[in-house]
């Protein structure tokens, strides 16, 4: 392509006719007006300004050349920009899961395969395992297991209603995304989807504490938890029962003893749960009658005059010093 001059005013009879050579060029047409009467540095030297290919041309060169690999998914798995060399646009030996090359802190993490989701749903909904148990078995976080069961329940409902299920969309996306596949127990080791023991970093623990202790003292997680007003990490993780089970396994106990302890723990948990439910039911029973009207739900309680409590006409003490109604801290 021949080099183009920067300004290419249309030769008009007005501008060409009566202009002395010494006078600076005057632009008479509005659409070709130059805002500076001084010619550019390159023009003063008498050289035309070099013009490269336009950005639009460069885009098409890239998209039809090296960029064409990104058009559709292939056999090689996810295709992110970082998996390709920036100069040669050849695929690197080690594929990267970083979609944005300038931000290595964001990585594309695996998603559950459809088969895995089906298995989780089966385990919880058909075989009756608890969400907690399924989470530990599949190495999938508690919230995710619960969400998978909800989503699969919707899918079953759609199938029963004869609605269209776009399985081809899921299949197409599984080719583009990193995927955690289901591996049956007899066919090798399961794939770990995510760390299920992630501890939320509580704002209470963000402060610096200087606690003087004797050198001989063993300062443990429990002590640290007390200092910050938090439960120790062993209890605060999503699966504290896995920590207990691991600890017992390290004690070299017999299998019978392990099973007995596990059964005892499960029994205690069951009793606690039942107690909690009965307490909630009791509370609801004594809560008075409920009357629902549109947006409102009225709770009608029996009132007795003269009993201790709220007295009509007397101010509440909640504005007094020391009566703080807003919770000052919570865990």
């Amino acid at each position: 392509m021949p080099p183009r001059p920067r300004h290419n005013p249309i030769p008009s009879p007005l501008s060409l006719s009566s202009r002395p050579a010494s006078q600076p060029q005057k632009c008479l047409l509005a659409h070709t007006r130059c805002f500076s009467a001084t010619p550019s540095a390159a023009a003063r030297k008498g050289e035309p300004r070099p013009v490269g290919p336009s950005q639009r041309t460069e885009f098409f060169n890239w998209i039809n050349g090296p960029g064409a690999v990104f058009k559709q998914a292939g056999e090689e798995g996810p295709k992110y920009l970082s998996s390709y060399d920036k100069r040669t646009w050849e695929r690197k030996d080690r594929a990267s899961n970083v979609p944005y090359p300038m931000n290595p802190a964001f990585k594309s993490t695996p998603v559950l395969s459809n088969e895995m989701r089906e298995q989780i749903y089966k385990r919880v909904e058909i075989e009756g395992a608890s969400v907690r148990k399924a989470s530990a078995e599949f190495a999938v976080s508690l919230e995710r297991v619960a969400a998978v069961v909800r989503l699969k329940a919707v899918e079953r409902k759609w199938q029963n209603e004869g609605k269209h299920v776009s399985s081809y969309l899921t299949k197409a996306l599984e080719q583009m995304l990193p995927v955690t596949h289901f591996v049956p127990a007899d066919q090798g080791q399961r794939q770990i989807h995510e760390n299920i023991q992630e501890l939320f970093s509580h704002p209470f623990a963000g402060r610096q504490a200087f606690v003087p202790t004797s050198e001989s003292r063993e300062y443990t997680r429990v002590d640290a938890g007390k200092e910050f007003g938090l439960p120790p990490a062993d209890e605060a993780v999503p699966h504290p029962e896995l920590v207990v089970a691991k600890r017992e396994r390290m004690e070299n106990l017999s299998l019978d003893e392990l099973e007995r302890r596990q059964a005892e723990r499960e029994r205690l948990a069951q009793v606690q749960q039942e107690e909690k439910e009965s307490r909630a039911a009791e509370k609801l029973k004594n809560a008075g009658t409920f009357v629902e009207q549109g947006r409102w739900k009225w709770n009608l309680k029996e009132a007795r005059a003269g009993s201790v409590g709220f007295r009509y006409g007397f101010p509440h003490p909640d504005r007094k010093k020391g009566h703080v109604k807003i919770p000052t801290h919570f865990i």
Binding site: A73, P99, V111, L177
Partner: peptide, 26 residues
């Protein structure tokens, strides 16, 4: 028949805080 649009693979990722079922688009 439906097929994925072009140049989707480099943008294909689902963050960890979402759980998506594309079968029903939920």
């Amino acid at each position: 028949p439906w097929r994925p649009r072009d140049y989707l693979p480099p943008f294909a990722f689902i963050p960890k805080y979402l759980e998506v079922n594309h079968n029903t688009c939920h």
